[in-house]
Structures are given as C-alpha cells and as structure tokens.
C-alpha cells in the first residue's frame, strides 16, 4: 500500500498563446479520476505534462503535487509517476523478466523472487524467459501493468490503455488494472474516450472542452 495522493493546482497548458486546458483537482489514495474530452482537447498533453515530457513549444503553469511535494522541477525519472500507454510497449529486446527487472530499483532485494511472485499474481507464472512479442495483447497489457507496479510509483497515469483491446479482453484487463491500482492505494488519472472506462473507474469524471 502506498497511500500517496496526487494534486493538480491551477494547472494550465497553452500552445502558441491559446489555452488548451485548465484544471484543479485532487486524487486520493486508491482513487481514479477520469478525464474525458474530444480529440484535441489536450487530455493527452495533460498526462504528458504530469509525467514530465511536455514539449518545450507548450507553455505551462501551475503545480503537480505528489504527497504535497511539487514535482514540476524534477526530471521525469525522478517524479515516481507511472504511465501506461495505449500500447503495452514492452521492450522488445528484453525478456518478460528483463522488462520487469528494468523497473525494479537497483537496491531492491530478491529481485527474482519479486518477479516470479508478480507474474504468478497476474496469472502468468513461468513466463519469465518469454520473448515479449510472443505474448497475446491481454498478456502484454498485464506485464506492462506489473512492470509499472514494480517500479514503485507514487501515482499512476493511464492514457487510454484499453482502447486497442477487443471488447471481451478490454473488460477483463480493465477490471484487473483498476483492482490492482486500488489495492496498491495509488492515486490514478485516467484519460479515455470510452464512457464504460469512466463508469467502471468509479471516481470523479472531468470533461475537457
């Protein structure tokens, strides 16, 4: 359990003098805030901004507080904010275990044990040495989730992570992801087009214009 919280304070992002979005919100441990809006409303820019990758052409102001501490001046890798993309993006040159080991802190103890327990936990026991490109879409998504959790983030961002899965698989994966994030007590921001995603997330819903 991490029990951290995530707060966006007077966050504003603009491009070429034109404001894309403005948001104030606070997400508690285990809560999932959903951000919806049409394409071009800047919802992806919001995630990119929180994660720390916003391109310099954008102007931004406001602050991102993780457990009360502003992370805006930190490089992405020091923010401890996890991000799930639309694609699982498992590193193709590493095995499943290699991908997971990449996420573990260098001082973590008993790495192999953490990895096999994690795999067991998501129903992929014994997949350690598999080539990630041989996994099914659902399996790859689960490994990506596990990889994120093993990196011990303080907050999580989800960028339409289920949009590329077919309906049946989307349902299953969504349940698994939400359950795990809640169980870990992580504050989460979900960006999506899909009303069903928002409903199942069960948290506050913000719509950008």
């Amino acid at each position: 359990m991490s029990n951290s919280d995530l707060e966006l304070k007077d966050v504003s992002i603009s491009l070429g003098g034109k404001q894309l979005l403005e948001i104030n919100c606070s997400v508690g441990p285990g809560e999932i805030l959903t951000v919806m809006g049409p394409s071009g409303s800047g919802k992806s820019s919001l995630l990119v901004y929180i994660a720390g990758f916003l391109a310099p052409v954008f102007e931004s102001s406001g602050s991102v507080l993780v457990n009360g501490a502003d992370v805006c001046s930190l490089a992405a890798e020091r923010r401890h904010i996890g991000l799930l993309f639309q694609d699982p993006l498992l590193f193709p040159h590493l095995s499943v275990a290699g991908n997971l080991r990449f996420a573990l802190q260098s001082n973590a103890k008993q790495k192999n044990q953490a990895i096999s327990e994690g795999l067991n936990d998501i129903g992929l026991a014994g997949f350690d040495d598999r080539d990630p490109s041989t996994l099914s879409g659902g399996q790859a998504s689960r490994v990506a989730l596990l990889r994120l959790l093993l990196s011990a983030p303080n907050a999580v961002l989800l960028d339409e992570p289920f949009s590329k899965l077919d309906t049946q698989l989307r349902e299953e994966t969504r349940t698994l992801v939400f359950d795990k994030l809640r169980a870990s007590g992580l504050p989460t921001i979900l960006v999506t087009h899909d009303q069903a995603d928002a409903e199942q997330a069960g948290g506050e819903i913000r719509t950008l214009l």
Binding site: A51, H80, A103, Q105, S151
Partner: peptide, 12 residues
Amino acid sequence: PRWTQVASTLGA
C-alpha cells in the same frame, strides 16, 4: 520516443 518515456516513468 515512447521507449525512452516508458523507461523514464519506470525511474531510469
């Protein structure tokens, strides 16, 4: 660029 971004969000 997402390969590097994923790596960064994992703390690399």
